[in-house]
Simulated scan of single mutants.
Amino acid sequence: MTKNSMRLDHIVLWVTDPLAAARFYQGAVGLEPVRVAEFAEGKAAFPSVRVNDETILDLALLAFAERMKMLPGAAASAGHPVNHICLSLPADAFDALRTRLAEHGVPLSDIGHNSFGARGKASRSFYFRDPDGNVFEARHYDE
């Protein structure tokens, strides 16, 4: 491991229905909802889901992309060009996620082996899409 103190804070996903996306991530993926009730009440601009203590996924309404003015070209970022987001889990949580996604009717890739990532080669991995087409990889490493 490096001694870098930088961490991944959040990823913003463009979604067509933030509440439906939050339900998917809570129910099918098993992530904790953040500010979902506040968003539903009009008190927050978007809901989020918690990946871990340090990282969340923000579920931003795709229609708001045109308002992204903080950087030239930011509005064009909607749908560009993230290939996938990888979630690393312990083996038992990996199995539980795959089961939960299947129970929700989410199409899953076959299980791959020994794909390289931040912690070396992962024992197993698979891919799935959320309802808005964002691609996720789930993996676990032998500990």
Rank of each mutant, 00 (worst) to 15 (best):
I111K: 10
R35S: 13
P33N: 05
A78L: 10
S125F: 10
E66H: 14
G30P: 05
G105Y: 08
R100N: 01
G73L: 01
D95E: 13
R7I: 12
E32W: 11
L57R: 00
F46M: 09
R50G: 05
I56Q: 13
K121W: 07
L61W: 09
F24C: 03
E41C: 07
G117I: 00
R50T: 00
F39E: 01
H113D: 09
L108Q: 04
I11V: 15
L19M: 12
R124S: 14
A75Y: 08
R124P: 04
A63I: 12
G133I: 05
L87G: 00
I111L: 11
A78H: 00
G79T: 02
P131F: 02
I111H: 03
A60P: 08
L71S: 09
H10R: 09
P18R: 03
S48A: 15
E137F: 05
M6P: 02
N83L: 12
P72V: 07
F24R: 05
A91S: 09
A45M: 13
D53M: 02
V34R: 12
H84K: 03
F64G: 15
G73R: 06
V135L: 15
L8T: 10
A102T: 11
L8I: 14
T2K: 13
L13Y: 02
S88I: 11
N83I: 11
A22T: 09
F126E: 12
P81K: 10
S123G: 09
L13A: 04
S5A: 13
Y127V: 04
S77H: 07
